[in-house]
Every structure is written in structure tokens, then in C-alpha cells.
């Protein structure tokens, strides 16, 4: 049911773009105004969310570690999994961001014969997630040719590597196939496994379908439902110089593609997709594990009015001495 809501939402968005352009001819709205607005929402929303997080105090020192903490010199410590220096944290974060280190640790727990609990490494989700994110990055990088004039050779080089399976025109890109497979897996995972289905909300499916929609249309505009790519670039470069012109006859598939991408961009700061920036701000990952060496000051601490033993003794010195109890200070 949740998946259906999300599916209809994305289908509706596609229809809106299609009829907006093909029926009503609102090309400028879909090609210029909405993308500009989406970009503005993305930038402002992203900064707003990150600043909001940065204003939240970290009351406790809570790095989660998976290795020996640095202590005595002859005890070997794990400098990355339990980082004792900034460099260690940088290495740890890099592994987390580039290779999804902690997802790699994902385990499947099973009850065997109702007696024995077994744990088994489960790397499928890690693989699906990694393939999806890396493909997306390379695809976005390939898009940069539409925003650059002249196009540098390293972009063409990356494109040629990605299209190394060529032999066909239009070229078949490895990342296009990979991202479609990864997204399909990420979706099926939510439908097939009852536990995952139970916790899947419409917003989980919405992000997936939106991405799938963008990717499928992106493949279509290069293959079966071609658009005038030169016109697209004229439009994109015009938007950068704040002098947008919408060339005639780009083709409706482009407008649906760009509309879904705009929705994704505008939706980003308000959704679970913020896990991207969020990973940088996770105290469990970005803190140095040095709580025994350096005191973590809770920013919430306010000066508490304390009454020390010495003060207490001063107050009751005579009475204590009177009953013959020992005193710290005579």
C-alpha cells in the first residue's frame, strides 16, 4: 500500500510534466523556472538543515568504536576503527563515506531450531547501496558536459571508460545498467522481506521511485525517446549565465526528466536523503575516541551551585567537634 501511494505520486508528477509541456506548452516553466526554484530550495534548505544540526549540542562523547582504544604504548591500538587522532577520524570518515564501512558490518540474525541464534554477515545491502551511490556520482559527473564549455578531456575520458561496452550507438553505459539494477534491488528488498516491508513508509518508496523515474527517463532520452541534446546544452548554459533561452522542440522526455530531477532536488533537504550531509555530522563517527585523555565538555552544562564537604565542615565544625567526630581540618 505504501509503495502504491509513492508510485502514484511519481506517476502523477510525470503526467504533470508531460501534459504541462505537450498539452499546455509551458516549456519555460518546466525548463527554467522550476529548475531554478528547485535549485534555490536545495541550496537554502541544505544550509538550513546543516546549520540546524550544527546548533544542536553534543552532550556526551559518543564515538562508536570497533577496535582497541589507544592506551598504554605496548598495547596495540586500532587507529582507524577507534581513532585517537584527527587523521584517524579523517580516515574513518573516508571509509564510511566512500566505502560504507559500517554497512559492510551488517549482520543477519537467525534463530536455528528455535534454540541457537546465529549471526551471518549480510553484504547484499552494502553492495546494492554502494553500486547505487557510485553509479549516481559517475552519472552526475557525466552530466557535467552539459554545464561546461569547453568540455575538458578528463570528462570525456570518464565517459569513454563508462561506455567501454560500446559497439552500439547509442553507447551503453555500465553505470546506467548498474544503477537500474541497484535501484530495483533496493526497491524489491522493501517489498520482499516482511520485516523491511513492515518498517517501509511511503517516503521510503517515494525517494526510490523518484530516482527510478529520473534514471529511466535519462536512459530514454538517449535511446528510445530521443531529445535534442545540443538544445539541452544551450538551455543549460543559458541558465548559468542567467540568460536562459528555451530552444524549440527539445522533446517531452527531457521535460519529464528535468521535472522529476527538480522535484528530487527540492525534496532533498526535507527528506531522509539528508543522510548524505548527515553522515558528516554524526557524533558516533566524527568524534575522536579520546574521552579518557581529553575531557568532553557538555555544552549544556551550566554553573551548578555546589556545596563541597569542606564548606559543609566549616558550617558545622563546632557541632561535629562537640560530638567528638573526626574532622578533616582542625
Amino acid at each position: 500500500m505504501n509503495a502504491l501511494y509513492a508510485f502514484f505520486a511519481v506517476a502523477l508528477l510525470m503526467l504533470v510534466a508531460f501534459f504541462g509541456v505537450w498539452g499546455l506548452g509551458w516549456n519555460t516553466l518546466f525548463a527554467v523556472m522550476i529548475p531554478y526554484a528547485a535549485l534555490a530550495i536545495f541550496i537554502i534548505g541544505l544550509i538550513y538543515r546543516v546549520v540546524k544540526w550544527a546548533r544542536a549540542p553534543v552532550p556526551f562523547h559518543i564515538p562508536t568504536t570497533c577496535g582497541q582504544q589507544k592506551s598504554l604504548p605496548w598495547i596495540k591500538s586500532d587507529r582507524i576503527e577507534s581513532p585517537s587522532s584527527t587523521m584517524g577520524v579523517v580516515a574513518r570518515m573516508a571509509m564510511e563515506i566512500l566505502l560504507f564501512r559500517s554497512l559492510f558490518r551488517n549482520d543477519k540474525v537467525q534463530l536455528e531450531d528455535k534454540k541457537r541464534v546465529t549471526f551471518q554477515g549480510n553484504r547484499v545491502l552494502w553492495l546494492g547501496g554502494l553500486v547505487f551511490h557510485w553509479s549516481l556520482l559517475i552519472i552526475l559527473f557525466r552530466h557535467s558536459r552539459l554545464f561546461m564549455q569547453p568540455v575538458p578531456d578528463f570528462m570525456i575520458f570518464v565517459r569513454d571508460i563508462d561506455g567501454i561496452l560500446q559497439g552500439l550507438i547509442p553507447a551503453v553505459f555500465i553505470t546506467d545498467i548498474a544503477i537500474l539494477m541497484a535501484l530495483t534491488y533496493l526497491f524489491l528488498r522493501r517489498v520482499v522481506f516482511p520485516q523491511v516491508r513492515y518498517i517501509s513508509l511511503p517516503s521510503d518508496y517515494f525517494a526510490l521511485f523518484l530516482l527510478l523515474g529520473v534514471v529511466i527517463l535519462g536512459v530514454l532520452v538517449k535511446t528510445a525517446w530521443k531529445v535534442d541534446i545540443e538544445g539541452v546544452k544551450v538551455l543549460a548554459m543559458g541558465m548559468f549565465t542567467f540568460n536562459p533561452v528555451v530552444p524549440e522542440g527539445i522533446g517531452p522526455a527531457f521535460y519529464i526528466h528535468i521535472f522529476l530531477a527538480s522535484v528530487l532536488l527540492a525534496y532533498f533537504p526535507f527528506s531522509k536523503l539528508m543522510h548524505g550531509p548527515g553522515i558528516f555530522l554524526s557524533p558516533t563517527r566524527n568524534l575522536i575516541n579520546n574521552s579518557r585523555a581529553v575531557r568532553h565538555i557538555n555544552p549544556w552544562d551550566y554553573p551548578v551551585k555546589v556545596h563541597t564537604y569542606e564548606e559543609w565542615e566549616d558550617e558545622f565544625r563546632e557541632a561535629i567537634r562537640g560530638v567528638g567526630l573526626p574532622l578533616e581540618k582542625e
Partner: peptide, 27 residues
């Protein structure tokens, strides 16, 4: 935080800087 945000936006907008530097952005 601020340098992180600035670095992110400079990185993702690299096509603009390359084009602007080349002077052929409007061609």
C-alpha cells in the same frame, strides 16, 4: 561547518568555474 558547506558548493559547481575561466561560456 561553514568551510564544509563552502567546499561542497565549490566542488559541485566546478563546471561553472571551468567555463567561466575559459571565457567561452556563452558560445
Amino acid at each position: 561547518i561553514i568551510s564544509g558547506i563552502i567546499i561542497f558548493f565549490i566542488l559541485v559547481s566546478f563546471p561553472i568555474w571551468i567555463s567561466a575561466a575559459s571565457g567561452t561560456i556563452g558560445d
